[in-house]
Design a protein around this nucleic acid. Structure first.
Lengths: 233, 233
DNA sequence: CAATGTGAAAGACTTCACAGCC
DNA sequence: GGCTGTGAAGTCTTTCACATTG
């Protein structure tokens, strides 16, 4: 609908409506591109970038085509320009304020994770319900009591909450952060969270990943006729 | 530079042909069922179980139909029986031996994670390259030096390696565990690992999850009227 | 009757293969 | 010549809707 420059896509879906599968890969491309940039590479072909990102090149080109026409035929993509375009598309040109709730082993690991700041995520609060660790300093932040959850979310403008509490506490914490205005939640607790329409939840679950691996591992070890025969040099 | 296939080639489909998307949901159903079992529920309908697992009921029934006909029409599924069938399908009726390589914040969190033992995953080793933490005891295990990686993998029969090292070390560690016989890898390092055919890699990446949330968050904030693309030659 | 199990339809995603442009 | 961008084909996944069965 919105007018764009002349020779742009005739496709029904204009630049908005990027497929979810594509969105999930953009951060991977971004990381690969940043690696290339650090190594001083100025231009990259879809074939090379795809290899660095671990996908096939047709998929990469199709993915990028959803953002616009940022490549040059016969040449490839300009690394720095593409970094900027993907960052912008992902919303990384602005800063996001994050709160981590639950300062156990995992919460501590997350608090110390370097990948935050470098990508525009600012941790504005570490909160825990356990009074014995409130006040402790971790990675430059002081642990606050969860009583202050609503205050911190509002005062600091938190828009993403990371839930790293025990399973039993997760839904209650989630309800509170949502009530306080958070609309994106990254959940590490092993429960399915219920949220109102309009709130996004993503789940990271270690035990599920291991179980999926176990399933495949079992198939490799046991099954009578497997079709993926391993060729051994 | 050995030529390798980038990206873990997902093993096609298992002998019984359970779709990958279904496999990824079985652990979620299993957890929901275990919750029901703990609450003394004996029988559950697809509608109820689907709600507990956060999926739609047609999908649940289709998923379960790939395992066999374990329900009773007009009644539902017997909780305990279904727990057993899914566990068996996932390979959780046997024990899996896991090694965690990289004992930083994240490695410690993983070592202390309770969801392991309860699901048949036994952590047989914690390894790190940093001599200053070798010997430290964490969650009942002594940290070993990565020099012993091959020995531990072989002696203990490790089949799943969890890589929680810094990005720069991850590929080398991966190569070593694969050479020592590991065929399933859970990777927490922010790199794309290359592995030979037949090795399964799953990746967990905090920063990618946050970036995906940021993308959606940005869309919400902007409303249905953003999108003016500058033409940048 | 109630709820499963499942063909068939719809939708999403991936891959192919090549036209078009540099 | 080389490489992008993309329709079209192919594959996988979800959803629908209902015949089937205890």
């Amino acid at each position: 609908m919105t007018p764009r420059h002349p020779n742009a896509r005739t496709l029904k879906e204009s630049a908005k409506g990027i497929p979810e599968a594509t969105v999930a890969r953009l951060p991977v491309y971004l990381r690969a591109l940043q690696g290339l940039k650090d190594r001083g590479v100025a231009t990259v072909s879809s074939e090379e970038l795809a290899a660095a990102a671990g996908v096939n090149s047709a998929k990469l080109r199709k993915d990028l085509s959803h953002l616009g026409s940022y490549g040059t035929r016969g040449v490839g993509y300009e690394v720095e320009y593409l970094v900027y375009q993907i960052s912008r598309e992902l919303g990384l040109t602005q800063d996001w304020v994050v709160a981590i709730i639950g300062v156990g082993n995992l919460g501590r690991a997350l608090a110390g994770y370097g990948g935050f700041a470098s990508r525009g995520f600012r941790v504005a609060g570490l909160l825990d319900a356990d009074a014995s660790i409130v006040g402790e300093r971790i990675s430059g932040l002081t642990v606050e009591h969860t009583d202050k959850l609503e205050t911190i979310i509002k005062d600091q403008g938190v828009s993403i909450a990371v839930i790293a509490t025990p399973a039993a506490a997760a839904q209650a914490v989630c309800d509170r952060v949502v009530a306080a205005g958070v609309t994106s939640v990254l959940n590490f607790a092993p429960v399915v969270l219920s949220v109102p329409e309009g709130v996004d939840v993503r789940k990271v679950d270690l035990s599920i990943e291991l179980q999926i691996l176990a399933f495949h591992e079992q198939r490799k070890a046991g099954g009578p006729h497997e079709e993926y025969i391993e060729v051994h040099p």
